[in-house]
Nucleic acid binder design. Structure first.
Lengths: 251, 251
DNA sequence: TCTTGACCCTGACGTTGCGTCAGGCCGTAG
DNA sequence: CTACGGCCTGACGCAACGTCAGGGTCAAGA
């Protein structure tokens, strides 16, 4: 008889005791994350010792940034064990911290620019963010190259050259796409010319280094593993066209 | 005549060009954050060079974590200048980073406990988070004490003693509140006893060090500056009652 | 016994930044 | 003339509660 009334708290007491709000308790109740052990005749929620333990676990998992859905999965052992969840979460938080640090770094740089120049220099500010994002792109591209290859690339690729190359690619791609939509024959002279310019541009990037050429090829082949925001610099159609042109010239 | 058609992009072109989604453009449009420079007869949005610049600013401010509302305030110079916003945002991000680091630290500790013990030790995990939160409390309490005072406190306050003290306070407060609701006279012997125990507990914390006693007093007096989540360990009523009892005994 | 307060309950809307349909008009190539 | 790709305007959805609003419950004082 006295078992069931061990120690029952009403909503607000329980809330104060555990440091969450009454509204949050309602929320967890509706989500099925924490149902009170009992109810009074009038429908008042009654929480017991078991609920304290469970809520502490909830709060703990919330502290490390799990969503309520994930928390439920972990606590109900639905396909998620704690150690796996912890490892995943650690990685996610690490990534978040990286981004935070980049943002803080950007702010600090912008502040230095502003205090030295006095005026809110939007161009510089925008540039700072752009550079940081570029670095991010490079960070994941890096894993396709060896140390030495990166070394070599960084020596050759000055900002001006990169800009020039970017421009050349844009022009060439436009012409290639025009040729495709005009239905030009890949074996025609015009197509051969485009293919030659294409090869020259690739060559200017690889610098004739076959290792770099191979890495570049790997990078493209591995499209399935590209990050979500990455986009191909040119369409598959363009690539196909160029390949046909090369095949035609080889005959 | 050619002025107005300098270079106009349709929604999806503009989106690709600037790296945001068309839907985001619609959103910014509705919020009044970025209205397209023009529309075609059919109602199609048309973006120009001015819009590119503005959108870049928006993206930049988003990168450092400003909300769209804040961005609008900054860009429209409604009461917010850029440097102020940057400073504030830097502080906010710093705070976020602190919390992220605590969460990461907690996960790492929990993982170490789990790999050494093998089992998901919830008690230990919950304890880890509790300790971190306690440290947070102490962090802001710290500013009321000098270096030496903190030194002395840390030497005397072992975890067991703290737990004992916490318990003693809980018991005493319960008795004091009972006495208040019973309407006990503050000059009565019972009230005197309570006041004496109160003083003893305070004494056990200050260790007879008048500097620490003063700092403690300052800490309490400065309630207006306590962080939002901090709560008084006892009610004003209890304090008032004890003060009356002390006053009565002084006569 | 009636009346306060102090609590409790259940909806239901608001917040933030878009993603994701759904239903329907526009414009161009075949 | 039709089909297909773009564009448009709603409108709902998500996460985790905060914040009313409207309305019972319960113990204590008049």
């Amino acid at each position: 008889m006295s078992k069931t009334e061990k120690m029952l708290y009403q909503a607000s007491e329980f809330a104060k005791l555990t440091g969450v709000t009454v509204r949050a308790l309602h929320h967890y109740d509706r989500l099925g994350l924490l149902k009170p052990s009992g109810r009074t005749g009038a429908g008042y929620r009654l929480y017991g010792a078991r609920d304290v333990a469970r809520l502490q676990q909830i709060v703990t998992l919330k502290f490390i940034g799990l969503s309520l859905k994930q928390i439920r999965a972990v606590l109900d052992r639905e396909s998620f064990d704690l150690s796996t969840a912890l490892r995943l979460q650690r990685e996610i938080l690490g990534e978040k911290r990286r981004r935070l640090e980049m943002a803080i770094g950007a702010i600090e740089k912008a502040e230095r620019v502003m205090t030295s120049s006095g005026e809110p220099d939007w161009k510089a500010f925008v540039k700072i963010i752009e550079v940081i994002n570029m670095q991010n792109e490079w960070d994941w591209v890096k894993k396709y190259y060896t140390e030495e290859q990166l070394q070599e690339l960084s020596q050759r690729a000055t900002p001006e050259l990169l800009e020039q190359a970017q421009h050349d690619w844009a022009v060439l791609l436009k012409e290639v796409n025009a040729a495709i939509s005009e239905g030009i024959d890949p074996s025609s002279e015009r197509a051969q010319g485009l293919a030659a310019r294409w090869s020259a541009l690739v060559e200017s990037f690889t610098g004739g280094n076959p290792g770099i050429a191979q890495s570049l090829s790997n990078l493209y082949t591995d499209q399935a593993n590209w990050p979500a925001h990455a986009q191909k610099p040119f369409s598959d159609d363009a690539m196909t066209f160029i390949n046909k042109a090369r095949a035609a010239s080889a005959k």
